[in-house]
Design a protein around this nucleic acid. Structure first.
Lengths: 152, 152
DNA sequence: TACAAATATATTGCGCACAATATATTTGAT
DNA sequence: ATCAAATATATTGTGCGCAATATATTTGTA
């Protein structure tokens, strides 16, 4: 009774699949550009946050990037090892770890400023589409954050 | 990738970040539901393709899902080990490996039919937004596939 | 002031996702 | 027919991303 084009298991009907594919393809596009700065994409996101406001805690970074300590702790340790950030226990609350940029990390900012334009260059997509897309994806992210964890 | 005007390094102006976040959050939402079927999200995508048309090669799956053999080969081996698919060298071209569903894999289809509705249930987003979003993301995926590999 | 609950980060184990590389097979130009 | 180039898959090593769990610190309440 189900029409061919209403089959819920059709890959082309899925919303999640294009999002998954776009995320992978974007990461693939970013990789060689960010590699010149010695960064991965999630590391680049951490730097974007730190360049705006510092210090951050592991938790505040996780809230903003929607990641948990299982992802962030090893990532931040690698960034510390690379000399880009510092990790210090908060003296006023020993549970927390304060994340700050080092001088080397701050120096990266000027080079990173040219990353966005490098990416946009080869992409045949107009500004209106990008703005509309961004607004729609943001709405989805908001909706996804609103889903209770154990929800059926 | 950012929009013109203003600070290009502002997390809020990025288009890629919400896409990255949405992809992660969706995967997190899918995980427990698909776990009941013994599948991960990319494995689920492989099954969606195979339920439509079989057999596929590693390469044809990669073309459709935008993944390469480095990702697919170990993934498919795990699915074979789980008894969901078979992997056979193509007798007419020994370079290829034919991927087919097993009876056990085919049986999963009916249970999987309820996955999409289970996901949509808790999401406070209207149909129009979803359709518009899907169309915009598809356009981005198309544009991303059009970027030359060594592009600067 | 105890001390259980809440909070913050770290650890473990698994499965992607990718670049780089390796191996085997087929194709095509001579 | 030969053999270099192209094609298809596999392997290696690195870095996420996550659930589950562990550990340490702080908070709230009796």
């Amino acid at each position: 009774m189900t029409l061919p084009d209403s089959d819920p298991l059709d890959l082309d009907r899925q919303v999640c699949f294009p999002l998954y594919a776009a995320s992978n393809l974007l990461n693939r596009l970013y990789r060689p550009i960010l590699a010149e700065l010695g960064l991965t994409y999630p590391q680049y996101l951490v730097m974007l946050v730190l360049w705006k406001h510092t210090p951050q805690t592991v938790g505040s970074l996780g809230d903003m990037l929607h990641l948990d300590s299982g992802t962030l702790t090893p990532l931040l340790k690698r960034m510390e090892k690379a000399g880009l950030i510092s990790r210090t226990r908060d003296a006023t609350d020993e549970r927390r770890v304060l994340i700050d940029v080092t001088p080397k990390g701050r120096d990266l900012k000027s080079a990173a400023a040219r990353v966005p334009e490098m990416l946009g260059a080869g992409l045949d997509i107009d500004t209106e589409s990008i703005i509309e897309l961004r607004s729609r994806v943001r709405a989805l992210v908001t909706a996804l954050k609103g889903v209770p964890v154990g929800e059926s």
